[in-house]
Design a protein around this nucleic acid. Sequence first.
DNA 1: AGGGAAATAGACAAACCTGTCTGTATATGG
DNA 2: CCATATACAGACAGGTTTGTCTATTTCCCT
Lengths: 188, 188
Amino acid sequence: MQSRRDELVDTALRLFYTRGFNATGIDKILAEAGVAKMTLYKHFRSKEELILAALNRRDEQFRNWLMSEMEKASPNPRERLLAMFDALEEWFNGRAFKGLGFNGCAFINAASEFGDHQHPIHRTAAEHKQRIVDYLEPLCRQAGAEDPVALAEQLALLKEGAIATAQVRGMPAASRTAKAIAATLIPA
Amino acid sequence: MQSRRDELVDTALRLFYTRGFNATGIDKILAEAGVAKMTLYKHFRSKEELILAALNRRDEQFRNWLMSEMEKASPNPRERLLAMFDALEEWFNGRAFKGLGFNGCAFINAASEFGDHQHPIHRTAAEHKQRIVDYLEPLCRQAGAEDPVALAEQLALLKEGAIATAQVRGMPAASRTAKAIAATLIPA
DNA sequence: AGGGAAATAGACAAACCTGTCTGTATATGG
DNA sequence: CCATATACAGACAGGTTTGTCTATTTCCCT
């Protein structure tokens, strides 16, 4: 059973993700969550804190999803890394998160709306991206990469490129473009 | 000499780019441009039309800059394509557009704030990205690519990945990661 | 069953938003 | 040099925003 706080964070995440952070008012979140305003301000000091909570939820949700997709695809490190791009395509096609169509990366979106790199929201976005790289690196090592750190950065960059391309141009197949490149980079 | 309309569009572009579209109010643009409100609404029917004008200006400005950087780097197609990533690094380090620090890609930002793919602003962003691909393709052909269309898509995806990485993680060196990959894709 | 914590509805303040309107001033071209 | 177009300042309407406050109700635990 979900606490009021959790319902608030879930609804906020959904609305922030689908309609933007600045464009989503507190009142809309409250109405959709069926929660009173004072309840929100008892759990969070401000809208900014709610955004941070929503992004932290998304970080957990997204990385859990991505890792489990990769890990269930194959025990082989190379195949696992390549499976990331198959997972992306599922996401781009709206099949990854129930009730949450693809609207780009929540963290790229957040970093774009809160451009100042010192801003807590921007920093949270940067941390998420770093965690993805940190997850890829040992896999790159296991796959026999000469420079696993560099390869992890390359694969992460391909992932970002696929996301941006899929979102802006409405091109879910960008995942395949990225996968084809990745296949040439990961040792056989 | 610049018309009032041009001053409006320039100021709007600068503020939209550095502080976001929804977060930037009409009044702030008017104050910074030193223009009266009625002048704005004589030239544009709404804020949305001003955003579209600003993005069209940016499309022209950005592609002119990118193409001239590439073309002055080398007459050789392969070198020209690789020079794109050197240009990106200049941009990431804030040296590309006078008085306009790097804040990600204005079109990725726009597509993220106006997520609906049917929205005129989102469409304008998609068109810009397509024009970049259309510029790369003949160069890929001249460089001797087996499948120039596919290579153009790959290079464009690397560009997007570098931009997103540079912005979210504050990592201008992402351009070099992308360039290293590009060098393996373009025939020697 | 009763006491305390938590959630509720709804009003409110103060600031902001976009877009309209009025009346005045400036500048340019014939 | 005057007529016309353009831009000006500033008020205004009507709606939205975040965050605070009060007074009431609901729920849970012992």
